[in-house]
């Protein structure tokens, strides 16, 4: 192992800061644990789905959520929603880049918060829509159970991430106000970096969930 994986500074914005501060290292280790949570859910989903045998997933009569060619209206909604969530990772990264270069990053962070909120809103709309169609936790055997549990767990993570991003956006507003008044922004970027790791992780999980719930 090379010397010092982590250096002293909690504040990675300090000149010469190393790649991982303690909080960033801790967050990465924590995300490994989060990954195992979703691995457990996805593993269970695979078992339950394979047990139904070919042709029975989704069960007959269940609302169609899988991607069709040509895509249905619901398909388009979820494709665009997925694109919005993935774009939010890019806007977040853009905000971080601007912040590191001395800006506030407000626009990037603000857009991320907006996209995150849109994603959750559309998720909620989809849930209500499917419930209206008769699909819920307790209908269509394990199909409804799996869909709502997995998207629910993910949605809860997005919600927590959104709260963190609102905090980050608030910090960016304060930074922007300092810039307006001609002062240089101060303070560490730890909060932004940790939120970023978490948000990107939640996005990657969605790629897996979207693939197995909607595409494959």
């Amino acid at each position: 192992m090379s010397s010092a994986i982590v250096t002293a500074a909690h504040d990675s914005s300090a000149p010469g800061a190393q790649r991982f501060t303690l909080p960033k290292f801790g967050m990465l280790v924590f995300l490994a644990s989060e990954a195992m949570l979703f691995a457990g859910l996805i593993g269970g989903y695979i078992v339950l789905r394979l047990a139904q045998g070919p042709g029975n997933w989704p069960p007959p009569g269940a609302p169609e959520i899988g991607v069709k060619i040509p895509p249905t209206f619901l398909n388009w909604v979820m494709i665009i929603n997925t694109a919005i969530l993935l774009t939010s990772s890019l806007t977040y990264h853009w905000g971080e880049t601007r912040m590191r270069k001395g800006g506030s990053g407000l626009l990037g962070y603000g857009l991320t918060a907006l996209f995150g909120a849109i994603f959750l809103g559309v998720q909620a709309w989809e849930w209500l829509h499917l419930k209206h169609e008769g699909m819920w936790l307790d209908t269509y055997g394990t199909y409804g159970s799996c869909f709502f549990t997995m998207t629910g767990f993910h949605g809860a993570h997005v919600f927590l991430g959104l709260l963190a991003i609102l905090l980050v956006t608030w910090r960016a507003i304060l930074r922007q106000m300092r810039l307006f008044s001609g002062q240089a922004p101060t303070g560490s970027h730890t909060c932004e970096e940790l939120t970023g790791y978490y948000w990107h992780f939640v996005d990657v999980v969605w790629i897996f969930l979207y693939s197995i719930l909607y595409v494959v």
Binding site: V29, S33, E34, M36, L37, F38, G40, G43, F153
Partner: peptide, 14 residues
């Protein structure tokens, strides 16, 4: 702990 516990959490939630 880090890798085994979350799987139990998933099962407990189910």
């Amino acid at each position: 702990l880090l890798l085994a516990i979350p799987v139990l959490s998933a099962a407990g939630a189910m």
